[in-house]
Design a protein around this nucleic acid. Structure first.
Length: 676
DNA sequence: GAGCACTGC
């Protein structure tokens, strides 16, 4: 099948006189950059490109059982509603991100002139702004997936609109299969039909159409402005050096109001390049004008992230050095130039070792086009690719979908809970490796969530309970075991602490202060108990902000921990679990962790190194662990990270006997393996 | 003796 690039630009032209780059003309449909004068809402809605397609869209929607489309997220749901389609139920519109779901709902409610939560509402984790009147419901795709556990046929919905499908998040990919199954089952059971609309920003829709039984495709013209694409003439051995040269080349030539956005791979190189740029810009001739260099990545405190939206002072150029957060999650106006290093840091998964590796790799063509597109949002723009056109041609066309790059344990558990009979052959749009599915099934069997009966894999009662938690299966299992050790309160806290990014704030410049402040919480029992100590202290001062600052605790994430814990506690109560505290008896907590996480265990070898009991992988204690200085004989850990070495992160000291108690069969098998 | 892209339930 011939493959076409999303947004394939026309043929190239050589620009003489540029030492570094050659260029290709505009990649997208030229449009006038003038903003229309303010008009009433109705007129504005009619001006949107999708309005032209309204009639055709509605005709097709009426005739067909299943649809594929592409277009404007705020309008299609309104068209459907106004045309009376799906009025018997609710129209769901899914988004990969919370902020998008919330802000889109706000905009549509405004257009419909109704208060949010009435006709138009949204549902995201920790927040449900809907009512019995809600007909247009914006939600995260993860939320719809979770709802489906209680309602696999999705009977409360008549239409599901899956937006931003091109991003291929794990949740959207699972949803594809779930809505397709629901659609078929409803037809078989003669229920109200479920209509599905897939919206994608790329033109690579063949896959979607094919998957949904060759559904019709509707193309919509975007509102992108033309963007000039430049490539380097020679391959660059050092993309950071190339970025630096290009930034200052542009800075010398372009008007100061033209901002630059540079796509890079991570915090460290961004901070380093930011320092270099600031240094150099101080020593430039006056004719150049000042430069404001701003770093942008997800782990920056929110206040610092907001700086990218502030316009630079007049006569000063804004240069933003960003990770791929600026590809989709953060949209910055006023960008005239995009510099694309062609590299990205992303996760890869090895199903054999079960290890996830975070590595710098080349972007896909689709990603390169996405980056370029960030330059043409208000007006025409320019994109400098810091690699040659030949190198571009060798990039893979699309980013590998997340579902093919991660551990599938929770996905498989979720599908089983939805009543999918044959998970090994589930109709994924892009099939994960069979080894990855198999290794997930094995992991879930070990946890007691699945069992094999006459070649059939079935969900156990324990597995069903595990699936009701929005957690990694091993965390859910640990919670479910906790009443047996009378330490549910502690385990709920620990699991909640582990579910957020990090509650610890570690500014490198204040390292000694951080260590001093943290010393009073450190437990020789490991990182879990240390975190628990911090959380208990936090609760004792009722989350006092000043206390958080003094103790280098991230108060925003701590707030999130509280919300997660409340949610988990609710689920426990619904399962009739007895929630007790073990007080100071933290050994009970460790015993419980050993029983829940025995697959992630490691022991000390005579030579002072560590080896995992599961796959005999050689590992080391991560230097961030409180056990780093010690030599515990036996530990369980939360995860392995493969960077310069293979490190265990978040360790808990356990007794070897506890592990043997937790899974006698498993460990006797492991012993045999070790001997042979 | 390290250093971690980005989402989400």
């Amino acid at each position: 099948m011939p493959h076409h690039d999303p947004y394939r630009p026309p043929a190239k032209k050589f620009k003489p006189g540029s030492a570094f780059f050659h260029h290709k003309p505009a990649m997208l449909l030229p449009k006038k950059g003038n903003n229309p004068p303010p008009t009433p809402m109705e007129v504005q809605r009619k001006r949107l490109p999708i309005y032209q397609a309204k009639h055709q869209l509605l005709t097709q929607l009426r005739q067909l059982p299943c649809e594929t489309g592409s277009g404007k997220t705020t309008q299609i749901p309104q068209y459907l509603y106004e045309a009376g389609i799906g009025r018997q139920g609710v129209i769901a519109i899914t988004q990969p991100r919370r902020v998008a779901a919330i802000s889109l709902a706000g905009r549509v409610a405004e257009e419909k002139r109704t208060p949010l939560g009435k006709l138009v509402g949204y549902t995201v984790r920790f927040e449900d702004v809907t009512s019995s009147e809600t007909k247009l419901k914006f939600m995260t795709d993860g939320m719809l997936l979770r709802e489906a556990i209680g309602d696999p046929l999705m009977l409360r919905y008549t239409v599901v609109v899956l937006d931003e499908a091109h991003e291929r998040t794990m949740h959207t990919d699972v949803l594809f299969g779930v809505v397709k199954t629901a659609q078929r089952r409803r037809r078989e059971l003669s229920k109200v039909p479920l209509k599905v609309i897939v919206m994608s920003a790329t033109m690579d829709v063949d896959l979607f159409s094919e998957y949904f039984n060759k559904s019709p495709v509707l193309y919509l013209e975007g509102r992108q402005h033309p963007i000039q694409i430049y490539y380097t003439k020679q391959p660059q051995s050092d993309y950071l050096q190339a970025a630096l040269i290009t930034i200052f080349q542009i800075h010398q030539e372009a008007p100061a109001s033209h901002d630059i956005l540079v796509f890079m791979t991570g915090q460290e190189e961004i901070e380093a390049l930011a320092r270099t740029c600031r240094d150099i810009s101080k020593h430039l001739p006056d004719s150049c004008g000042p430069m404001l260099v701003i770093a942008l990545y997800a782990s920056l405190p929110p206040a610092q992230q907001l700086r990218v939206f502030q316009p630079a002072p007049k006569g000063c150029r804004k240069v933003i050095l960003s990770t791929n957060i600026a590809e989709t999650s953060v949209t910055i106006s006023g960008i005239k130039y995009v510099l694309d290093t062609g590299m990205v840091k992303s996760k890869r998964f090895n199903p054999e070792s079960g290890l996830e590796i975070l590595a710098v790799q080349r972007v896909s063509k689709a990603q390169a086009w996405q980056r370029a597109g960030r330059a043409g949002r208000e007006d025409s723009g320019l994109c400098y690719r810091l690699y040659t056109e030949a190198e571009f041609d060798k990039l893979i066309p699309m980013t590998v979908p997340e579902i093919q790059r991660c551990n599938l344990a929770s996905v498989i558990l979720h599908l089983m809970a939805l009543g999918i009979p044959d998970v090994m052959h589930f109709d994924f749009m892009s099939k994960p490796l069979p080894e990855a599915i198999h290794s997930a099934v094995v992991q879930l069997e070990l946890l007691g969530a699945l069992e094999k009966k006459e070649q059939q894999v079935t969900l156990t009662a324990l597995g069903k309970k595990m699936a009701s938690f929005p957690l990694e299966p091993r965390y859910a299992k640990t919670i479910l075991l906790s009443p047996g050790f009378s330490c549910s309160e502690e385990v709920l806290s620990i699991v909640s602490l582990l579910s957020v990014d990090t509650v610890l704030y570690n500014p490198p410049a204040r390292r000694d202060e951080v260590l001093a402040a943290r010393r009073k919480f450190i437990s020789s029992e490991g990182d879990h108990i240390t975190l628990l100590n911090i959380y208990r202290a936090f609760k004792k001062v009722s989350g006092n902000k000043e206390w958080c600052r003094e103790n280098f605790v991230n108060s925003r994430n701590m707030g999130l921990v509280k919300a997660v814990q409340a949610q988990l506690r609710d689920i426990c109560l619904k399962l009739n679990m007895k929630l007790e505290s073990c007080g100071s008896d933290t050994a009970s907590v460790r015993r419980c962790l050993a029983h829940g996480m025995f697959v992630n265990a490691a022991e000390l070898r005579p030579d002072g190194s560590y080896v995992t009991l599961d796959s005999q992988q050689s590992v080391a204690i991560h230097p961030s662990s409180v056990l780093f200085q010690g030599k515990p004989a036996c530990v369980v850990f939360n995860e392995l990270v493969h960077t310069s070495r293979c490190y265990m992160r978040d360790l808990c000291l356990v007794d070897a006997e506890w592990l043997a108690d937790a899974a006698p069969d498993y460990f006797s098998r492991k012993m045999r393996h070790a001997k042979s």
